[in-house]
Design a protein around this nucleic acid. Sequence first.
DNA 1: TTGCACAATGGCAACGTTAACATTTGGGCG
DNA 2: CGCCCAAATGTTAACGTTGCCATTGTGCAA
Lengths: 334, 334
Amino acid sequence: MAAVKKSVSVKDVARLAGVSEQTVSRTVHDSPSVRPETKERVRAAMRELGYRPNFAGRSLRRGKFKTVGVAMFNITGTGNLDRMEGFAAAADKHGYAITLTKVDGHPYTLESASSRMSALPVDGMVVIMNRMPADFGTFEPLPGMQTVLVTMLEHPLCSTVDNDQFDCSRQVVEYLLGRGHKTVHFISCPERSLSGMRREEGWRETLRAHGIEPPQLVRGDWTAQSGYAAGQALADDPTCTAIYASNDAMAYGCIRGLESRGKHVPEDVSVVGVDDSLGDIVPDCRLATVRFDNKRVGMWAVDKIAGAEGVEPGVEHMLFPGVLVEGDTVRDWH
Amino acid sequence: MAAVKKSVSVKDVARLAGVSEQTVSRTVHDSPSVRPETKERVRAAMRELGYRPNFAGRSLRRGKFKTVGVAMFNITGTGNLDRMEGFAAAADKHGYAITLTKVDGHPYTLESASSRMSALPVDGMVVIMNRMPADFGTFEPLPGMQTVLVTMLEHPLCSTVDNDQFDCSRQVVEYLLGRGHKTVHFISCPERSLSGMRREEGWRETLRAHGIEPPQLVRGDWTAQSGYAAGQALADDPTCTAIYASNDAMAYGCIRGLESRGKHVPEDVSVVGVDDSLGDIVPDCRLATVRFDNKRVGMWAVDKIAGAEGVEPGVEHMLFPGVLVEGDTVRDWH
DNA sequence: TTGCACAATGGCAACGTTAACATTTGGGCG
DNA sequence: CGCCCAAATGTTAACGTTGCCATTGTGCAA
């Protein structure tokens, strides 16, 4: 039985193949200046020894890791899975890997995310922001570490990307007004949610832009149960003919709440949600909603870092609009 | 303006602080054999220069990366977010990082996941299996790369961990039989799902163990819509008093399907799901279900790799049982 | 005073890879 | 036959860190 060697290096391969280390390296990179037969001999040696290039040696030499770090304050969250899908897809495209870090137990600041990342083998980093970090205004990215924030807020020093929540509300409100409704009621979400607040602004300002004073909103907490309560509350309001809920769970809850009070959707009230998250969970309910492409958001973030390759790219801010998906829960108002 | 230096090394810090590189290194690691005042001088120099230790140099020297790789064939999938939460939590605990890779466009084999990982800076790897890889039986983990598979199947060379799907079905069936039902109908899932198949086995074998011949199952496709159809189909079956669905979406669909045919839950039929995924999406429905702790599964996998630290740990197989959560959709049968 | 233990610090080498430069070989051409 | 060019391969050094061993300095007992 062969002695266990810590790891096989180019030196070992070179010795076995009877060539120099440099020739091995050239073979690994498939350089054209190595004779095919030599290459074959080297490859045979690599196979025999089970050689795999050492990442640390390579990175040390090159000064690049070909890896993008992703810092999350909360891993569980709507759309995170799709965003990760995007991160992974874009990374793959560029030959990069993704390093995931949960910033937890630390204060909710960009600085803590940044310093956590700085000790890891990454060329750039993406931070997923759900709430407002305490140091958003003052944060400076680490020198040499390209930093992209996933948020709607624009940062002076970091590129940002997110779904356009304001435009989402604009689309929904104008869609409902366009169908003849005189106003649009709103079921909001907890005030600490950045994206939720932006949706609320979009709803309010779009109504005002159409000369309509926004009605009293109903505050929910993202759950269907809170939507149910909101639906029951709004069922008694004769001016309420269209409801826009901050997410699909609340929209669905709202529908059931309205029904529990004898109101029918969409005959009596139209309902629109956001997120397209009901998907395969609820039968027989084609809820009108807004679909976001979180995968695209994730890809953009990683592209920004991995696609740069040496050039120092400027700060950019990107918002992707959602797509309004029509359903069976909206009807023209007479 | 200072010239832009590629990166600050111990050498730079040493020069500024007027000490040797070794003393800088010792300060970084907070060695007790450096005088406090010297340490402070070095720390000041580090701050001034913005020194951060270089990962590549360190790993090269140490031969360890303090990173666990996670290979996924599909990123989107039930429980993956919770598993990742577990990966990240366990990694954090050990001072490790997580490197995520999507194995895509490549064949569905452990070998492709493994070779993809081999070029990355990881000390061990976790593979999340959803389906049966073609080379499951013949796969050998890379030497020196501790490999953990997330699957119920036991592998001779790799440790494995997953939820106990067989036991999940056992719990559900025995629970329903214990409440007086004479048999339990089953809504299954696509046959390529490993966990789904194991649930099916559990259902079948537990019934047989109680001397009951399993009734004809209804095949679903994970969606509420297929559950709805199943519910309608089973509504006409007078022997059907208890239904066990392979996931909550189908269970919920089933309930609505039964109701559409005039059957009431739980008065006429009891329904139990699996996954505890309805959570905040459906109002007024406390579905009886089985809750899995995917975070714990993820933590176990990473603990196995990061917790080992040098010792060569044996192959282990771990199954975590789910917890049956009672709800309002089950009633005793007279 | 000398010797000795111990605390604090420095010098050197090596981890695996590859860029840059150096060397060898073979062939074409004056 | 000698020269030069290009193809193929080899040699060297450096990336940043840290383990090992060597060196210096300080205080105390003999």
